[in-house]
Design a protein around this nucleic acid. Sequence first.
DNA 1: GCATTTGTTTAGAATGATTCCAATTACAAC
DNA 2: GTTGTAATTGGAATCATTCTAAACAAATGC
Lengths: 143, 143
Amino acid sequence: MIKNDTVHLLERLDEILMLKGLKPTKQRSCVYHELLLKKDHPTADELLIRVRKRLPGISLATVYNCLETLVDCALVKQVNVDRSSSRYCPNLTPHAHFRCLKSGKIHDLDLSAEDLDKLQSILPEGFFSENFDLTFSGTSSFN
Amino acid sequence: MIKNDTVHLLERLDEILMLKGLKPTKQRSCVYHELLLKKDHPTADELLIRVRKRLPGISLATVYNCLETLVDCALVKQVNVDRSSSRYCPNLTPHAHFRCLKSGKIHDLDLSAEDLDKLQSILPEGFFSENFDLTFSGTSSFN
DNA sequence: GCATTTGTTTAGAATGATTCCAATTACAAC
DNA sequence: GTTGTAATTGGAATCATTCTAAACAAATGC
């Protein structure tokens, strides 16, 4: 059975950091922990406020640094919608985003293997995609 | 037969502006014209340089204003990839974007009705999309 | 144990894209 | 022609993010 809970993910962070020659600091751990706790899509500012409950002295620059590290470690995805602040998301399963124009909320839409095939099939010859970014906007009944 | 050339599109701009109670100015016309001339995906800066060949006195603020108006008139799409400068695109047919990680170029990928259906089919119940934004990144043999 | 090294965090300054603002300018209607 | 309204302009302001230099912390070698 695959352990997939917060504790396990936090351990995994430390392992990955070590492997990359980076240090497992409490700032990195807390930023990641806070992201895992509430899987909405917070901005760096919002995350700063949450993380400061545990680490009152942490700075915004550090939150940005930690997030950059987490993205480099492929533990977190950076979500950019329009030109507003980047949002960060610990959901690593392939998914699209849906932005509700009424509530402003961003929902994850998990994608099946079939969905992924559909997306791949859109690519014409000569284009090789490593990554994609799919964001719908409209209205959702799940606010 | 549908007239679809630059002249026609420029006339259409003026009509749409009039209908919206906005004025058909030479700045708006030139910015749109320049976008139609070379269908790459210029940023506001790049467009400023091009437009200044005809309208040497135009300011960056005006280029931004004109682009905003064009986007409001649904004649131009604003393309945001990551957090870099917005790019502007006069291609109104439904399409996705492909960013080549080698050349940095952005290619339009035109989408068939079938492709659009595939995208729609990704949406779960309760989500109603008015708009989508699909950007692939990877490598392309068309540089 | 203590000094050294190296990576990390911090606060504040700097940057870059975009928007705002107040003053002109350009038309259009009277 | 004067008046009114919207558009343009240049520069200032804003916002998110990155940079910088100094302080800090943890690991290593002595």
